[in-house]
Simulated assay, not measured.
Amino acid sequence: MTKRKTLFITGASSGIGAATARVAVAAGWNVGLMARSADKLDALARELGDSSLAVAGDATDLAAQEDAIARVAKHFGRVDAAFANAGMGLDTPGTEAGDPEEWRRMIDLNIMALLYTTRAALPELRKTKGQLVLTGSVAGKLHIAGSIYGATKWFVQGYAGNMAQEMREWGGRCTLIAPGMVDTPFFSEPKPDKLKPEDIANAVVFALSQPAHAAIPEIVVMPTG
């Protein structure tokens, strides 16, 4: 019997992260779940059962991510993939009108937390020749007037390609998932005609399911509407 692989997910309590946990477990994976909302995380872990482990914590804290990865690796015996998914946008867009403190929080989550996931996970991923998955955005592929959020996703776009080059040296893979607009709690108002979190979750699990000789460096998912 093949041992179940393990996926670590940040931003796992809702939206794309929670949907990915559900799709991954249905596909035969164990999942380690990290988010700040302990109540939501515990509820998701109860739903998913023994194939999941909830580790509440702040993704912008490197030590918290290192602890979470270590606990997941000890609990399941391995970490085969890490999904750096936690992220946020801005309530007040623009540079002149924007809030510098909000910029800092966004940069800490969209960029630093993603780097922390990578740093914390790489020692375990080397053991399994595993895979790193990063949540980018179509906003990181286009120039959008004055978008600071989009600029953080340009970082993710570039970093994903750089990590793919580094990880291939030891048999690992890195995949960027670049969604268009997704109907998640990320937005203050529902977006019923846009993508669903499950659409992105399916893309993540598709990338993870490829044989070792096949790398998918990027998946762009757009709403048809």
Score class of each variant (00 low, 15 high):
residue 1 M to H: 13
residue 2 T to R: 12
residue 4 R to S: 14
residue 6 T to H: 00
residue 8 F to L: 12
residue 10 T to W: 03
residue 17 G to N: 06
residue 21 A to Y: 01
residue 22 R to C: 04
residue 23 V to Y: 04
residue 24 A to F: 08
residue 25 V to E: 06
residue 26 A to Y: 01
residue 26 A to E: 15
residue 29 W to K: 02
residue 30 N to K: 04
residue 36 R to T: 11
residue 37 S to F: 06
residue 41 L to W: 08
residue 41 L to M: 09
residue 42 D to M: 08
residue 43 A to V: 11
residue 45 A to Q: 14
residue 47 E to T: 11
residue 49 G to E: 09
residue 52 S to W: 04
residue 52 S to Q: 07
residue 58 D to Y: 07
residue 59 A to Y: 03
residue 60 T to N: 12
residue 62 L to E: 15
residue 63 A to L: 13
residue 64 A to C: 03
residue 65 Q to A: 14
residue 66 E to R: 15
residue 67 D to G: 05
residue 68 A to C: 11
residue 69 I to R: 00
residue 70 A to L: 06
residue 71 R to V: 10
residue 72 V to S: 00
residue 73 A to V: 13
residue 74 K to A: 15
residue 77 G to A: 08
residue 77 G to R: 04
residue 79 V to D: 00
residue 82 A to P: 09
residue 83 F to I: 11
residue 86 A to K: 05
residue 86 A to V: 13
residue 88 M to T: 15
residue 93 P to S: 08
residue 95 T to P: 00
residue 98 G to F: 10
residue 100 P to L: 12
residue 103 W to P: 01
residue 106 M to N: 01
residue 110 N to C: 12
residue 111 I to A: 02
residue 112 M to E: 10
residue 113 A to I: 10
residue 116 Y to G: 04
residue 118 T to C: 12
residue 123 P to W: 03
residue 125 L to S: 03
residue 126 R to P: 01
residue 127 K to L: 08
residue 129 K to V: 01
residue 130 G to W: 02
residue 132 L to E: 07
residue 133 V to S: 05
residue 136 G to H: 01
residue 138 V to P: 00
residue 138 V to G: 02
residue 141 K to D: 14
residue 141 K to G: 10
residue 141 K to V: 11
residue 144 I to A: 06
residue 145 A to Q: 13
residue 146 G to Q: 15
residue 148 I to R: 04
residue 150 G to C: 09
residue 151 A to N: 04
residue 155 F to H: 13
residue 156 V to C: 09
residue 156 V to N: 06
residue 162 N to Q: 14
residue 164 A to S: 13
residue 164 A to N: 05
residue 165 Q to F: 14
residue 168 R to S: 15
residue 171 G to F: 08
residue 174 C to K: 01
residue 174 C to P: 02
residue 181 M to R: 06
residue 184 T to W: 02
residue 192 P to S: 08
residue 193 D to G: 14
residue 193 D to I: 09
residue 195 L to D: 10
residue 195 L to I: 13
residue 208 L to Y: 06
residue 210 Q to F: 04
residue 214 A to P: 00
residue 216 I to M: 09
residue 218 E to G: 00
residue 219 I to F: 02
residue 220 V to C: 03
residue 224 T to L: 10
